[in-house]
């Protein structure tokens, strides 16, 4: 048996994009409003887990394998650490230097500090780190629940 009834599947499909947009909004506005990579990632992971519960672990495992999720999580972690090391290379030569922010510098993307209120393109590496951590939390939490649900499911032919 894979998944729940047709009503539950339809309602999960309808509410999934709303929860997805809400979580991605929290991640993207992590440096402006309450929230951030961890919190928004948890919201998006909850939406994915809702789909997993409605459609069943066998169907979800047919759509995406946990190896691919694991690769994406490693990608998020690598992005986070690479941004930290970029501060060591390009910035003021210390770890986790916010090297994109220069108060008197050019008004390029991700650099607009000390010019009034912050916007979506200010705060240097903080939004980029939010995206990296958000990707990591989304696929990490989803992979945990997916693997646990799939391991406790009886497949066809098993006793």
């Amino acid at each position: 048996m894979s998944g729940m009834s047709r009503i539950v599947k339809t309602m999960a499909s309808v509410t999934f994009p709303l929860a997805l947009i809400y979580g991605l909004y929290i991640i993207a506005h992590g440096h402006l409003t309450p929230g951030g990579g961890f919190q928004g990632g948890a919201v998006v992971a909850s939406a994915c887990i809702m789909i997993l519960v409605a459609y069943g672990s066998v169907w979800t495992m047919g759509k995406i394998k946990e190896k691919r999720l694991s690769a994406f999580e490693s990608l998020g972690a690598l992005g986070f650490i690479c941004l930290a090391f970029f501060g060591l290379i390009f910035g003021a030569n210390y770890f986790f230097n916010n090297f994109l922010v220069h108060p008197e510098g050019l008004d390029i993307i991700f650099n607009g500090t000390a010019k009034g209120l912050s916007n979506i393109n200010t705060a240097g590496v903080i939004p980029l780190m939010n995206f990296a951590v958000g990707l990591k939390v989304i696929v990490g939490l989803f992979a945990i629940v997916l693997v646990m649900a799939y391991a406790t499911t009886k497949l066809k032919g098993e006793k």
Binding site: G36, F80, V101, T113, A114, N130
Partner: peptide, 22 residues
């Protein structure tokens, strides 16, 4: 003025105390 982030908590977590987040 230093980070350009309105959210002080995120600025602390990802900038001032980034090593802890790692």
């Amino acid at each position: 003025s230093e980070t350009g982030a309105d959210n002080v908590v995120t600025a602390v977590v990802f900038d001032y105390r980034g090593f802890d987040t790692l």
